[in-house]
């Protein structure tokens, strides 16, 4: 990507040619992520959307080095995490934290909230008990929980939304620079989802966070992101500022995704999804050339022969398509 030089010091996370492959079990290789590159600038939220099986979660975990990517580099504030030895990586982990989709499964059912939220302090810091407790109480009230009433309880005594708040408290207690959110609101009810989204925005402002926000929900992603990247079958299709992407989708897949979003408004005509019916190809045997071509209504012979390179159509708007949509 041709970002201008003077922006470089502002880039907190730079991912280059990230590849995640794993063993499919029957001797075949699953190509979960096949060479994606993107930057995140300090203080911004990058949304990563795609449907199930597109590799967005694998990409997020590769950034977290859990497990490490098969190939490619992940530079956090100039340091290549993918090349660091284990012992040097461990203290750095305080700088990048993650929250997960399942609010219940991400908390240990046998540990009290105090120990769950204080876990990172115990691992990373050398604070005294009193100081530790003060921090835990502080961060719990930060995420909207009553510290006194929650500290000594077990996770099963809380609702999904409250569990997600506890997860968030654990993630921000070390004041990380980067917060990776993997579908953090997908398991929640609409009204609770709204509370958590607002809370994430508040926390971002208060703790000067930079976020990578992963979701399958285009409306949610637009709400929280400054820029949005669309992923399909292990590749990035399109990356643009949020408004721009939703107003002028250039990749046929982005357009199809947008058309499919059900709007809570009966006056809005139901969009026709411009996509060839059929199955998502298997990530063990992805199509040649452009990965979307088997379902793309505009596919040409060229699309099967040559993989489209990401090209910039307007400042900051890149599309990986031989025949991008216009208008």
């Amino acid at each position: 990507m041709n970002r201008q030089r003077q922006d470089d010091h502002d880039i907190i996370l730079a991912v280059r040619d990230l590849v995640v492959e794993h063993d499919g079990g029957d001797g075949r290789t699953v190509h979960a992520v096949s060479g994606i590159s993107f930057d995140i600038r300090r203080g911004e939220t990058l949304g990563l959307v795609g449907e199930s099986g597109c590799g967005k979660t694998s990409a997020a975990r590769a950034v977290m080095q859990l497990p490490r990517p098969t190939r490619g580099s992940v530079h956090l504030e100039g340091m290549n995490l993918a090349a660091l030895p284990r012992k040097d990586l461990r203290p750095l982990r305080a700088k990048f934290q993650m929250i997960f989709q399942d609010p219940i499964a991400s908390l240990n059912p046998r540990r009290r909230v105090r120990d769950i939220v204080g876990g990172p302090l115990a691992v990373q810091g050398e604070l005294g008990t009193e100081e530790k407790n003060r921090r835990i109480a502080e961060v719990l009230s930060d995420v909207g929980l009553n510290a006194e009433q929650t500290m000594e309880r077990l996770p099963h005594e809380f609702s999904g939304g409250q569990c997600q708040r506890i997860s968030l408290a654990r993630a921000i207690i070390l004041e990380p620079k980067l917060l990776i959110c993997d579908e953090p609101v997908s398991a929640l009810d609409v009204s609770v989802q709204a509370q958590i989204l607002n809370l994430l925005e508040e926390m971002k402002a208060r703790h000067a966070l930079t976020m990578l926000f992963i979701s399958h929900d285009l409306a949610v992603v637009k709400h929280i992101s400054d820029r949005v990247a669309v992923m399909y079958l292990g590749k990035l299709c399109e990356l643009a500022p949020a408004e721009e992407l939703y107003r002028h989708p250039g990749h046929p897949y982005t357009a199809a995704l947008l058309a499919a979003v059900p709007a809570p408004d009966p006056k809005r005509p139901l969009g026709r999804i411009d996509m060839v019916a059929g199955e998502l190809p298997s990530p063990t045997d992805p199509p040649s050339g452009c990965r979307f071509r088997t379902r793309c209504p505009h596919a040409q012979p060229l699309c099967a022969e040559q993989e489209p390179k990401a090209g910039e159509v307007s400042p900051g708007h890149t599309i990986a398509c031989h025949f991008p949509l216009s208008g």
């Binding site: 989204l197 285009l218 637009k222 709400h223």
Partner: peptide, 9 residues
């Protein structure tokens, strides 16, 4: 409380 695609970020 529903986030909408038409809303600004």
């Amino acid at each position: 409380s529903i986030p909408r695609v038409d809303d600004p970020p």
